[in-house]
Structures are given as C-alpha cells and as structure tokens.
Amino acid sequence: MVAEKQSKFKWGMAVDIDACNGCQACVIACQSENNIPINTEDNFKDARGIEWIRVERYWEGEFPNVKAKFIPILCMHCDNAPCEPVCPVYASYHTVEGLNVQIYNRCVGTRYCANGCPYLVRFFNYWEPEWPESFQNHLNPDVTVRSRGIMEKCSMCIQRIRRGTRDAKKDKREVVDGDISPACVQACPTDALVFGNQKDPESRINKMKNDKRAYTLLDHLKTNNNVWYLAKVDPDIEAHHGDKHHGEGNHKEDSH
C-alpha cells in the first residue's frame, strides 16, 4: 500500500452492463492480443478452457417472454486479492500501479491461486499451447507464450499500458484519459468497457464508479475490486418501481 502511493497511476475498469449486448468481441480481441491458446469444445467440457475475459449469459423469464443479460467477467485486480498470499513463490504479484499480474517465469503451477479466486478468472495451462501453422506469425511479440504447467490471467494488457506510459514519457507529456486501452476495451462496439486511471479525478472511470448504478461483484468478500459494474436498466422494472435502481442482488437471483 505504501508503494501504491508513490505511483501516479491506479488502473481500473468499469463495465456498463446496460450497454453490453454479448457480442463476444472482447473475448476474441483478448484471445488474439494475449496469445491465448485456441480452446476446443473438449476443453470447455473439461472446464479447462482459457478465457481471460468471458461473457456470462443469464436468462430471465419464461419462453417466449425471455430476457438475456450479459456480464463480461475479467480479473477484478483486487486490492485485497485472495490469490496473492497463497502463492508459495510470489508469482502472483501486485504492481505499484494497482494491477494483479502473474509472473510466468516464477510460477511453478501449484494452482493454489486459482482455487482461491472467487471469480474463476485464473487459468491453468494443462497442455502445451498449439497453434495451426498459419497462426505462427500472428502471435503478439509483446506477450509471453505461456507453456504447459503454469497459471495465466488477465493483466489488463500490461504491454499496452507500458507502451502508453512509455510513449507519453518520450513525448514529455502526461498520460491522458483514453490514451491507453486494453484489447477488450478497444474492441467493444458499444463502449460498455471503460478503462482508466483512478487517480485522475477527470477520468471517465472515476465518474462511472461513482454512478448510482455502480457495484462490485461479490462485495461481501471485501476483496476491494478495481473493476466496477454498472447495473442493467430494465425499462419494465423501472416502470414498476419508479426511479429505484436495482443492483447486485437482482443479478444474483437471475443467475439460476
């Protein structure tokens, strides 16, 4: 916490669920930006698919009057992360800029962190990643290709953050809001995902996290997430309850 005060950045993300239409563009963008191995149907059947960001879908109501709700789930980059103290080799690392990143060369594959994570956003490489021959030159050179036996997770595109801060330093200017965007944010067609610096009072993320619709997932666990969700605005419910907004509780009920 002392170190965090020294940095002028504290990265965070806000997800406007009302704007998300479940198109999965963020999933594809993340997959190609971060050299994530191609998941097969069997991988998902074994619950071993790797998706640093996934779009969870919830149905509400009975057919034909059903409503679909989508929640993109990525690493929450918790300030009080359950995955960090359990790592015996300090591979789960908290940066001074408030990110929770995995140091791949330290990881020995104990999988304690994935067991500790309540959001299921840490993924273990059960196999050596393989790409078709035509994909070999499409891999991102800025991201390590993770080999078999180590844990991997969302890094909020740390390579893009570093590139953005580096370019600003080269041009001798401050990083402005919107300079840096992770792959998922860049790909989102409805701007449902917003990335920014929480220490910048003018940033969009700061305004969104202070919105009355804002909530964090599994708030009772007190993991102090850095990813905020803006609750869905349902016109039918709004009509019945006036301007009363509904938050986390409603989503949990809808989920089964």
Partner: peptide, 10 residues
Amino acid sequence: ASVGCETCHH
C-alpha cells in the same frame, strides 16, 4: 527506472 516484475515479465 521501474523495477517491478511486470516491467519485463509479462
């Protein structure tokens, strides 16, 4: 310069 692990290992 920055000496965090994420500087080079990502």
